[in-house]
Design a protein around this nucleic acid. Structure first.
Lengths: 347, 347
DNA sequence: CCAATATACTGAAACGTTACAGATTGCCAA
DNA sequence: TTGGCAATCTGTAACGTTTCAGTATATTGG
């Protein structure tokens, strides 16, 4: 029994996934016509077009990704490049959901491309570009002078960065206004009579470190408060390190009476450190912290919080890359998200 | 000037990505030979094989994924199917990193396939199978009678589940021993003299709900403690709901003196509810909670914790799917992770 | 020394898609 | 009638890979 007698496409019966050939056979048209009809090409008759599209819908035709990709080079893939050590848990989760929300009704798939501490952050990007694995890339942990952004720009690969760069090059980004955040935080603390402030910064090399530090500094002089330097940790440090350093700091005579934290996880450690030093939150010191989910007020209601929406960031970044892929001006695909006001615990 | 004179592959100069044709031209061999040489086929001479592989390495040849996929149907993709509303943040982040760790030095890519509350959980799986978008699938939120597992089994698609099923069908899984967890938790509370215990369960339909409930019930009768029913919430509920219901519960005369929580986020809410009711953790009630990162002891040091490692889960699941794809017996790709002991705060 | 056989290699076809360069038809102006 | 042209439709080739069915050469057994 030679199964090859019944060639695929000669019969329209099978359980095989329908292809253009199947569709062509069913409609009695040529493969080319079917292909063009499905993408609303102008040189296809109105009725034919409708007929093809109807049949395609009926039998659940889905273009074969490999076929399209091989022929056109279009992968229909967006890659999210993540650091496996230093990204915040909430960031990973929320940004992924934000991205998938946007690409849900597009043909795009999301692939996650990780890199670890030991690697050059450029490695995964280089891999993606060299192998042509994605039509667009989203990167985080953006630096003022970011080799990844430069590389992708040079290679003509659409991308969006979480955080801005400062290279005089224009590209899509989404950023949270950390300058405003730090400023608001300082003012909120000043309003509570705090005037010796410390800042737990973002990781030092990243762009938003600068924005945070500048917002902090400018607001300090605006309200006439002073800085208590606390440069031994950033939010990239471990819980234990932050906790220990905070305890050290808070045991000093010149300890701050207000602390600003750039991440919720760090804040847990900061508060623990404060309490290790025998001090009480809200009495001896106030803390303003960014958070990305409503968790800190359950932790200590004395905390002051500012919300950063990572899901929004994911959506914006996805929209930006897709926009660039679709031919929009990169310069028009930049967004900055204003911080919420500084929120105290509300019953 | 007709650029087509210089056909691709006729010259080995270009910046174009090398293909088998490039390699064939450079080595002076046929495309077929090169292809076979690269995969160590037996009918290729030892020297030829070495020569081809050397050249391939030198010029950084990478097989074109679309070509392979079109020809063989192999996608080299693993898909992780996630619920965009109900997965824990830490779960998403850790499991992704666990998976990527394992597939890092394989040709596999990880794609994230989301589905939302409104959708049938079977939808994304059906999509993946119908479009042949992945060689293997990882699902979570596994149910005793899981239509997704059944569907993939019927369609011959390798997969692994986070959590077990109970359909008499054998497939790879990784699970945390929630029966043991609940038992240990009960015993730890009993050891502190607590004997009226409440359980904040996993989501009701999922398999690990049963294991948790059974472990709880068996240990209760073992230590002679009694259950205070608390069926109005599960860890799928919002922080606010859990908090409110817990406060309600704790204001009753027959309130529990011990609570077991299946997730860290829920525990934050439970503690808030306890304190809303004017009670004190560690004095009026003890709480044992699962957590996936060291966060709860910063929150309240009176908490008792059990650690569940989601990164490990991710790695195990990835290993399991890859194993199945590679032809191993599905029954040999099952693993159960024992809970850590119940840990009090240690300085 | 011939045939059989093993060894090492090769071209053609196919996977599903799109782009290119026609082909066919009908209709109208000259 | 004829030539031209617009409107529709079509076959072929190509993307990069693997599989199938060989071919050519060397090696072996009798």
């Amino acid at each position: 029994m030679d199964r090859r007698v019944t060639k695929k496409g000669d019969d329209a019966s099978g359980k095989e996934r329908p292809t253009l050939k199947t569709l062509a056979f069913m409609t009695g048209l040529g493969v080319t016509t079917v292909s063009r009809a499905l993408k609303d090409a102008p040189e296809i008759g109105a009725e034919t077009r409708r007929r093809v599209q109807l049949v395609a819908k009926q039998i659940g035709y889905r273009p074969n990704r490999a076929g399209v990709r091989l022929r056109t080079g279009k992968t229909n893939v967006i890659s999210l490049v993540l650091n496996t050590e230093h990204e915040l848990m909430s960031f990973v989760s929320d940004i992924i959901y934000g991205v998938t929300e946007v690409i849900a009704d597009t043909p795009y798939h999301l692939i996650v491309t990780p890199y670890s501490r030991s690697q050059d952050p450029l490695d995964p990007v280089r891999y993606l570009v060299e192998t042509g694995s994605a039509d667009g890339v989203i990167i985080s942990r953006t630096q003022p002078n970011d080799p990844r952004a430069r590389y992708m720009l040079e290679h003509g690969v659409p991308f969006a960065t979480h955080g801005r760069t400062d290279m005089g090059l224009v590209h899509p980004y989404h950023d949270f206004d950390n300058y405003a955040f730090a400023g608001e935080a300082v003012r909120a603390l000043a309003a509570k009579g705090r005037n010796r402030l410390a800042l737990v910064t973002p990781p030092v090399g990243l762009t938003y470190f600068r924005y945070t530090v500048n917002g902090f500094a400018d607001a300090l002089s605006e309200v006439g408060a002073s800085e208590v330097p606390f440069n031994t940790v950033s939010i990239d440090h471990t819980i234990e390190q932050i906790r220990m350093r905070t305890a050290q700091l808070m045991r000093r005579d010149d300890r701050p009476d207000g602390i600003i934290s750039s991440a919720a996880a760090a804040t847990l450690a900061i508060v623990a450190g404060i309490e290790d030093a025998g001090l009480k939150l809200g009495r001896d010191v106030d803390v303003v912290s960014k958070q990305s989910s409503e968790v800190l007020h359950l932790f200590r209601r004395e905390l002051l919080v500012v919300n950063e929406d990572f899901r929004l960031a994911g959506s914006e970044l996805a929209r930006a890359v897709l926009g660039w892929i679709a031919g929009k001006e990169p310069g028009s695909l930049q967004s900055l998200s204003k911080p919420s006001e500084v929120l105290p615990y509300r019953g």
